[in-house]
Design a protein around this nucleic acid. Structure first.
Lengths: 126, 126, 126, 126
DNA sequence: GTGGTCTAGACCACC
DNA sequence: GTGGTCTAGACCACG
């Protein structure tokens, strides 16, 4: 699981880390119980500051995607499944994407199909 | 078409304006050729800085959603239909939403269905 | 509303700030809608780093005690009333306090009375 | 008396041990004079470092909750009753809890009632 | 060795 | 002006 950070875009680095780890879990590249690199290792590897890495982990922890074991480092939580509901932020993002898709000329079926395909690609671990 | 701005969330105000206008077009609340309020009027109505309103219009113009005419202000463009393709940013956002949906426990079908429903709601002008 | 920070105890500074602001709201010293000092002003006044002040505000924001208006600074939120339920952390803390009270020789009535008195003192703005 | 340790929360493990033993005494699960497991046994059972267990016992001894005898290990002290006063730390914690309760919408009566109930539950050994 | 906290600076986006 | 982000260091509690 290699992180690809882009320092030129507006998305904060800690958020890029967070997003890629979330995607990594969804894709099955990161399994529940699996250990994440320590903050220091991540910071060194990615060439960023410890605090930036720490911020990403704290966000992931707060969202329930990871647990930080006091003894070792951070591990992927397996417990977040089952809420069966998206939070309001994700819904807003989807609504906006649907609007942009419509204005791009995609039909409802094409959009729903695209969404399904993106979900599938994740399962395939693309 | 009334703007609903939330000054307490992290999305910048100019981006909130941009998003709501994009959604307004997608929902048909704003028709191609329709005049938008002037920057000054928008700023006054919403209680925001003119620079903020200006930034939103510049972004919309750059994305092709509106046209600005020196004489008549800004009007909704009708030309953005037909690209038949989403830009990379929207795709990334969708991919991330798909991942979060998967981790929330939604099945592929449930996710695609939700996306379709959100698209429909837009047509209904909800 | 003056902050009293103790740099010698183990409670992190950002948590001391958070606690005192929560108490300030509960005591009515800080009214809903009232503006808090800016991060910079708070940091200067208290002789601490901006990021420490920022951390306290982010925590308060996340807990719903304050809102940060992009245009001005942070204001006291008035919306957190009405949950009618304590979070699990507070309950655990209370349970532990009850245990320590019992071992100190306080009767159930004495403990409940003390708790009521502490609540009252807050209303009196002590 | 089984310890329930959570390695993922911010409360240090030695403090979790200390708290649960204090609660155990308050609940009557641990009687004055009763022997506690040795540091080594506790550490092995809980899967923690001996230093951690030792730190918990040192704290409990210093607070007067247990006595350590070179020959027989640690035993529950019966002497801490009768101070009839809470220490300042516990008072601060209670004050903060009272504030959070008030901001959650609990009335003074509801809060005092809750505190009494938590005290009772302890006597019932829940 | 781990994460958590803090400092003293800096830059940037937003308004 | 504001808050948000980031860096390069440091110290400390915990295990």
């Amino acid at each position: 699981m290699l992180l690809q950070l882009d320092f030129s875009i507006e998305t904060p680095i800690y958020m890029q880390i967070r997003n890629q780890i979330v995607l990594g879990i969804a894709q099955g590249k990161l399994q529940p119980g699996e250990r994440l690199p320590t903050i220091r290792a991540l910071a060194d590897d990615a060439g960023i500051n410890m605090m930036t890495a720490s911020k990403a982990y704290q966000l992931l922890k707060q969202e329930g995607y990871i647990l930080t074991d006091r003894r070792s480092g951070a591990i992927i939580s397996g417990a977040q499944a089952g809420k069966k509901q998206l939070d309001e932020k994700t819904l807003s993002a989807l609504r906006l994407s649907a609007g942009e898709a419509k204005l791009s000329g995609l039909s409802k079926e094409a959009f729903a199909g695209l969404c399904g395909r993106l979900y599938e690609e994740m399962e395939a671990g693309v």
